[in-house]
Write a protein that binds this DNA or RNA. Structure first.
Length: 500
RNA sequence: GGUCCGUUCGUCUAGGGGUUAGGACACGUCCCUUUCACGGAUGAAACACGGGUUCGAUUCCCGUACGGACUACCA
């Protein structure tokens, strides 16, 4: 299958995988699945300084949690091993040499300090420094120096980088799947470093070489790469390769104001930007994860998919399989999308309800008797956003009230309702079958006999039972508390409520 | 500063030369309910601005404004 679709997700292990990165992975995965292609996971760890231990494992775990499984690459193996760029150093070197030999690239001996000095000089004159066709003749490189000098420098092991010789004139154009034609003049592109002085390739070289070797057909990545796409095209041209199809995804924006969604926003907004919880190995700081916050993987997936893409129909809820079936690059938007916590929560509520009470009960209320736990799930499911709220709710439910809703008390507590509660207290012990229906009938009967309307006392009764003016179905609550406890609660309330 | 990209309700978005500009989240109201929640119904809410092109532009073109990304021997 030489023409089959091959896409890749290529994160850097510099920290926890950002939720925007997860979406990029998702779109790649969806396209591969949709078209019967291959989804490859490649690790771009060419920056030794920014490498963070544990980040790669985190990426793998995050994708696994969401069901985005690589067909090839890290964690899956494949014909192009290794898939970790740091282990492919020699490959990049040979390709860089090829460019040197063909005159498309050159050695540069300028130090970082020299270049920084150039930048400040240019800046003070109100312009920006570019290492390009104009400036390179005045800098220290194999284009400006004599062959002897260059050979001498190389023989002395002088540190050098390899830079791409970007043509002074010309226009680079490519057709982005999402943005259509993009044109850039080569004059605005500088002679980017391809090989660093530590022998590692830069992103640009490694990326292009690997995408070519691995026969990537579609490069789907974030919009932050759009400005360097023309450089990549230039590289493909320099090697004489056909570039893949590019698709630059709109950015995920912060909920308030403008700008790219960042870690800071998560801390500020009280919502996660990472799929899983992450502990910084350096500082020990913990960042929240969608999973730990209580987001279900299918809700996270659905929500993320809709940030920048839509099926064009009015269907909102999509399983992974449905997303695969409906997905297309053509329906991805151009404009950045703001992260909306409320909508994410809504998706979670929807998916929560799709789970069986039995399943929710056993995973989130494991210490409670199964039958009773299921009853609790039924009682609370409509009132929660995250499954772990269940435990708190049950806990609260089981405790005797300490305070009683003042507002209800002051408006509803009077001689008549006092009498009503006393009647209920007397009637409940005679209730034979302790089931919601029977309890209700029992209460109804005793109040009717006294000529008291149920509506007049029920809220007060609720407060007497739970302390709260609002809550889940009272009759079912009574059933779950059990006769004994209901009587005890009622006695306590009657005791505590102000004397009439 | 330079290069590039973008702009439909508060938010995510559908649509596209002639529409009552559609849906979802959030919000308001009503219904359901002994309460709250859920659910149902309903309401308010948008084509950034200015020029073209056209019989007609929110839709096409050009500007302007605003926003964003990039501008490292980071990815």
């Amino acid at each position: 299958m030489p023409n089959s679709v091959r896409v890749r997700f290529a994160p850097s292990p510099t920290g926890p995988l950002h939720i925007g990165g997860v979406r990029t992975a998702l779109y790649n995965f969806l396209l591969a699945r949709k078209l019967g292609g291959t989804f490859i996971l490649r690790i771009e760890d060419t920056d030794q300084a920014r490498f963070v231990p544990g980040a790669e494992a985190y990426i793998l775990e995050s994708l696994a949690w969401l069901g985005i499984s690589p067909d090839e690459g890290i964690g899956a193996g494949g014909p192009h091993e290794p898939y970790r760029q740091s282990e492919r150093k020699d490959i990049y070197k040979s390709y860089a040499d090829e460019l040197i030999n063909s005159g498309k690239a050159y050695y540069a001996f300028d130090t970082s300090e020299e270049l920084d000095a150039m930048r400040t000089t240019f800046e003070s004159q109100g312009s920006a420094f570019q290492y390009n066709a104009v400036t390179r003749v005045k800098l220290r490189n194999s284009l400006s120096l004599s062959k002897e000098e260059v050979d001498q420098l190389l023989a002395n092991n002088t540190p050098y980088v390899i830079r791409l010789k970007v043509p002074a004139k010309g226009e680079i154009r490519f057709q982005d799947t999402i943005r259509d034609w993009v044109h850039v003049h080569t004059s605005s592109i500088d002679d980017k470093v391809l090989m660093k002085s530590d022998g590692m390739p830069t992103y640009h070289l490694a990326n292009v070489v690997d995408d070519h070797i691995m026969q990537i057909t579609h490069v789907i990545r974030g919009e932050e790469w759009l400005p360097s796409a023309p450089l990549h095209i230039l590289l493909y041209q320099a090697f004489g390769w056909n570039p893949p199809q590019f698709a630059h995804l709109p950015l995920l924006l912060k909920p308030e104001g403008n700008g790219k969604l960042s870690k800071r926003d998560a801390d500020l907004g009280g919502f996660p930007v990472f799929p899983l919880e992450w502990t910084d190995p350096q500082t020990g700081a913990i960042s929240k994860g969608f999973k730990q916050e209580g987001y279900l993987p299918e809700a996270t997936l659905n929500f993320l998919a809709f940030l920048g893409w839509n099926p064009g129909t009015e269907q909102e809820l999509f399983s992974l399989d449905e997303l695969i079936a409906a997905f297309s690059l053509e329906r991805i938007n151009k404009a950045g999308a703001k992260f909306d916590v409320k909508k994410a929560q809504w998706f979670n509520e929807q998916y929560l309800k799709q789970h069986s009470a039995q399943e929710l009960a056993s995973t989130y209320l494991p210490s409670i008797d199964a039958e009773k736990a299921e009853a609790f799930v039924h009682l609370f499911l409509d009132r929660i956003t995250f499954p772990q709220e269940l435990e708190r709710l049950v806990q609260e439910f089981s405790e005797f009230p300490v305070t009683y809703d003042e507002a209800v008390l002051s408006s509803k507590w009077n001689a008549e309702t006092k009498q009503a509660l006393e009647l209920i207290l007397g009637a409940l012990p005679t209730c034979e079958h302790w089931h919601a229906e029977d309890i209700k009938a029992c209460i109804q009967l005793c109040l009717e006999q006294a000529g008291i309307k149920m509506g007049k006392v029920m809220q007060l009764f609720r407060v007497a039972m739970s302390g709260k003016g609002a809550g889940p179905d009272l009759m079912i609550s009574l059933e779950l508390w059990g006769k004994e406890q209901v009587l005890a609660r009622l006695n306590k309330a009657l005791d505590i409520f102000p004397a009439i």
